[in-house]
């Protein structure tokens, strides 16, 4: 059986295909999961999949996950656990083409081994956790590294946009976080792997890849001033920084342009502190304080 998927993080399309395969008793090795390669034109409609590629979710129920959970009832004969749904919802967002096959194989095995997922040493379970971990990390980095820039407001609410490049198809999963945090402003997060928008009533999501854009925000300068000065050159530890803030994220971080210079000058700055040592004379206000103290004690 050949299954063609849009493969842009939409859980519904995989679930539907997996349900069909399972009810027809098709073994995992006979299912060929293929990714549709299609071209999007920027303003046109997207894929022909009947799980609409552009959908809206009402506030509170957030985006797909909650809806997916409600509908994820397979035929009575089929067994899924809530842990399975929770994990595969994440894994499907991964960009590795093997994810569909792995998730289906797990679904298949789950029918005879109900506690399969509880065994972290099973190779398939391990692989699933590997995908989930990578997706979670990417979601976490998105929450951390999206940088909003202010743009022309269309109402009395302030408006912001951000360009971000995630590794996986995580925009729909991560957008509710921004909704919870930035409820009082309009915002759009545009990425090559789908975009999200919030104008106060509904969270909108599109699977279509967006194009990068440049936008200036004056606050970025203040932020750079902060970044440069909170850094302690005497504690330079570049590898620790890079493991948490890998270079692939740098190009969309306003502060990252400063990094090479800060690293280069760190040694020099520390040496200068040593050479200068302490100045001979304390500032005038210190001397004033001192004399006030002695006055008081007399």
């Amino acid at each position: 059986m050949k299954v063609r998927l849009n493969a842009r993080g939409n859980y519904g399309e995989w679930r539907k295909a997996a349900r069909a395969a399972l009810t027809n008793g098709i073994e995992p090795k006979f299912v060929d999961w293929a990714v549709e390669t299609e071209t999007y034109d920027l303003f046109g409609e997207t894929a022909s999949s009947d799980d609409a590629a552009v959908y809206e979710a009402s506030e509170g129920s957030a985006s797909t996950p909650a809806n997916a959970r409600a509908q994820a009832v397979l035929k009575p004969a089929a067994f899924v656990s809530s842990a399975f749904i929770e994990l595969t919802e994440m894994a499907i967002c991964h960009s590795d083409a093997k994810r569909f096959d792995l998730c289906y194989r797990l679904l298949w095995r789950l029918q005879s081994q109900k506690h399969l997922l509880d065994d972290p040493a099973d190779p398939d379970v391990r692989a699933l956790h590997g995908l989930v971990k990578s997706v979670r990390r990417d979601m976490h980095k998105m929450k951390a590294f999206v940088r909003f820039k202010e743009t022309q407001a269309v109402s009395e609410r302030r408006a912001f946009v951000a360009w971000f490049e995630p590794e996986h198809f995580i925009v729909a999963q991560t957008a509710p976080f921004f909704q919870r945090r930035f409820g009082d402003m309009d915002w759009i997060i545009a990425t090559p792997k789908g975009s999200a928008a919030w104008k106060g009533a509904r969270l909108h999501f599109s699977e279509a890849p967006a194009k990068p854009f440049e936008l200036k925000d004056e606050a970025d300068d203040l932020w750079r001033a902060y970044y440069a000065n909170i850094f302690n050159p005497a504690r330079l530890k570049v590898s620790a920084m890079q493991s948490e803030m890998p270079k692939k994220y740098w190009k969309n971080l306003p502060e990252a342009t400063l990094i090479p210079e800060l690293i280069r000058d760190a040694d020099k700055r520390v040496r200068q502190m040593h050479e200068r040592a302490s100045s001979a004379e304390a500032p005038a206000f210190h001397r004033a304080l001192k004399s006030r103290m002695t006055d008081r004690s007399q």
């Binding site: 506030e59 509170g60 976490h140 929450k143 951390a144 590294f145 976080f177 909704q179 919870r180 945090r181 930035f182 409820g183 009082d184 402003m185 970044y227 909170i230 850094f231 302690n232 050159p233 504690r235 330079l236 530890k237 570049v238 590898s239 620790a240 920084m241 948490e244 803030m245 971080l253 502060e255 990094i259 800060l262 690293i263 760190a266």
Partner: peptide, 23 residues
């Protein structure tokens, strides 16, 4: 969170928004 108004949210774990070259 800000769903009932205002600005901002806190969830169980904090977020590190950047790392300085001191790690």
């Amino acid at each position: 969170d800000s769903r009932s108004g205002g600005l901002g949210s806190t969830e169980s774990s904090g977020i590190c928004h950047a790392y300085a070259p001191d790690g």
